[in-house]
Design a protein around this nucleic acid. Structure first.
Length: 154
DNA sequence: GCCAACGTTGGC
DNA sequence: GCCAACGTTGGC
């Protein structure tokens, strides 16, 4: 039984259209530099899990598409690259600190805006909507997943 | 650009 | 282990 997740991405870096345009419509999910989010990828995420692709830090934040985890957690290559903004000098190949998974597009959806999400009582329990939440990967339970899909049809 | 909330770092 | 200082996130 696949779990469900919400994953934030800044569309200036990787948007739902970037995912759609990628070869094979999949991309490595690099740049996670938060231990809680990393641990989700390492311990709980599995290929086949469902993903809500969320645009953050942009003019219209919200859910922009559906995706799927398509590869296991492996070391994030950007941590070893001194030229990358995600370079981590404290990380070594022997003991990599940061992980990535692969994410593939299922389909682009209409934008379910953060504003609409906040107004939807059936979505009120979503972790991403809790005050002060900044976590870039959050769990979505079965009821929340179904409620998001239903609302996307409106 | 502002700023509240949160996570990380590092001195002690 | 505490906690102040600092850096980051992300909506507005």
């Amino acid at each position: 039984m696949a779990r469900h997740w919400l994953m934030k991405s800044e569309p200036d870096e990787v948007s739902i259209d970037d995912l759609a345009a990628a070869p094979g419509r999949h991309l490595p999910w690099t740049g996670v530099r938060n231990y809680q989010a990393r641990n989700f990828m390492r311990d709980a995420m599995r290929p086949g899990d469902d993903v809500l692709f969320y645009h953050s830090s942009c003019a219209e934040p919200g859910i922009a598409g559906l995706a799927r985890v398509s590869g296991p957690a492996v070391p994030d290559e950007t941590q070893f690259d001194p030229a990358s903004p995600y370079h981590d000098p404290k990380s070594t190949r022997d003991q990599p600190r940061w992980l990535q998974v692969e994410v593939e597009l299922v389909r682009k959806t209409r934008l379910l805006s953060l504003r609409e999400m906040r107004q939807a009582p059936e979505l009120a329990t979503m972790r991403v909507l809790q005050p002060g939440n900044r976590l870039s990967i959050t769990e979505v339970d079965d009821a929340e997943w179904a409620a998001v899909l239903a609302r996307l049809e409106r």
